[in-house]
Design a protein around this nucleic acid. Sequence first.
DNA 1: AATTACATACAGAATAAACTGTACGTACAA
DNA 2: TTGTACGTACAGTTTATTCTGTATGTAATT
Lengths: 180, 180
Amino acid sequence: MDKKTIMESARERVIETISHNMYLYGVTPSIGRLYGTLFFNNEPMTLDEMKEELKMSKTSMSTSVRTLTDLNMVEKVWKKGVRKDLYEAKKDWYQIFIDFFSNEWRKVVSLNVKAINQSIRELKTVLEEDLTIDEKETILRDLEKFNYAIEYYKWLNQLFDYFESNQIFDLITKEGKEPY
Amino acid sequence: MDKKTIMESARERVIETISHNMYLYGVTPSIGRLYGTLFFNNEPMTLDEMKEELKMSKTSMSTSVRTLTDLNMVEKVWKKGVRKDLYEAKKDWYQIFIDFFSNEWRKVVSLNVKAINQSIRELKTVLEEDLTIDEKETILRDLEKFNYAIEYYKWLNQLFDYFESNQIFDLITKEGKEPY
DNA sequence: AATTACATACAGAATAAACTGTACGTACAA
DNA sequence: TTGTACGTACAGTTTATTCTGTATGTAATT
């Protein structure tokens, strides 16, 4: 096997692995493959180049790039004289990991907390009324679960604060430097 | 609105919210709804009870329960005299969160590390041969990226160790107690 | 041993998600 | 102002996932 082929396949192997494992970030293999391609490409790419490289439609490239941008995994870059949009992969994987929690998880936590608080209020109102022993018991147990959930979400948010503030890196040191 | 309805809908709201947000753990709304139902049900449930409650097929209940079991979110319990399998929701959400990383993320990290190490070995072999300046440059930059990734995965594993060993709770205290 | 009650494998149907091609709007170029 | 190059909205198609019903195997019950 010639060196060009080896170089190619070494890179492809990793791109393919990444693409199949990025489901943890909620993205499909195709989008993962695009990220991998951008990550290893040493120059920013246009939509047409991506389309060419991945043999997919330009529309797909456009929406995939948007998804990756929303996840802070890709950014648009400017190069004077170039009319087409250029995109490059963000390479700080620690930051991507942290942003994922700051954005995706916090969004969910916030929705859950809102729903739970609403339900807590409703149950507390019902608790004022005349109730059978069983009804009261049911409500109290539900309230206990709601309160537990609220505490858990507080804990999660504190954890995410810890990530976001970079204090986590005092605890677990970041080694190596970002590739350029 | 009568109290029975309010109690019902307060619970349903939260179950529904949970069900739509459990995609972060990689499960569908249906499976999330099942978890929510089990979480609020104060007794373990049989597949037939789940099927009845969620108006879905027993087959779906069976496979969903398996998925939740794999994620350490549900467990089978024994009750003498009862022939059907009984399942109940695990209620330690902190543990569920931690297990998710220990299991799902570590699995992925391990696959990625394996692929990257293989590619590193291949590129190092090629590096021995005669190469143009450009080829050498490309290889060195790829190697730099591979090494960066390896360091990142080490960091992630350390983070997961920190979770798994419960040291994380020294740092961010767990408040409240688990609902029974 | 025969019967019944159960969980799940499997194939097919229903549903949802991903992907494409065309059409449109916008911005730059002539 | 007209023409050209570009990105993306949208509708329809393809592909993948989820869900169901039937069939099968196993374990408890008679």
